[in-house]
Amino acid sequence: MNQLIKFGIVLALICFAATLVLAFTYEITKPKIEKGLEQEEKNALSEIMPEADSFDAKSTDGIDYFEALSSGKTIGYCIKVTGTGYNGYIRMIAGIDEKGTIKGIRVLEQYETPGLGARINEKKPGEKEPAFLKQFNGKNARALEIKKDVDAITGATISSKAVTDAVRDTTSQFLDKIKTGKTR
């Protein structure tokens, strides 16, 4: 029994020390991590709508979005979209103008298979945006359909469809909402 208590104490001490070290590390890296995520979002926004000079974070009915402003006038919306891909969710930002035409899509986070599904977000060297996402630009967000408006990636139909469906559904829902004037 005595020995058991000793084991317990040794383990507890080590765990305690480990937690202390980790809590400390977490505290010093946390601001940097959060800033990085914010920066990532900001970069995506200004890539989608380079002509906007500020973005207003808002939300309606559970949809988080940014209103893109250019010298005080609304020029479009960047909507946070989450789709369910092959291995997990795909987090994106989809930019549309007020008529619902897609201005650009950026993937923030995805867990798709490298070489297959992950190619939704792969840039060829020298390209400014992933070829798959580029196909969406200028299309009507409400009527998006895989294989009609955008070509699916070979061997990764599910990932391609996940992006297309999620963008269409969320943006349509969003457009309906702002039309009925329910935004805050």
Binding site: K32, I33, G36, E40
Partner: peptide
């Protein structure tokens, strides 16, 4: 491992 993970998240996201 967690230290490495946190630092990578912070400096090489």
């Amino acid at each position: 491992v967690t230290i490495a993970d946190l630092f990578m998240k912070a400096y090489t996201p």
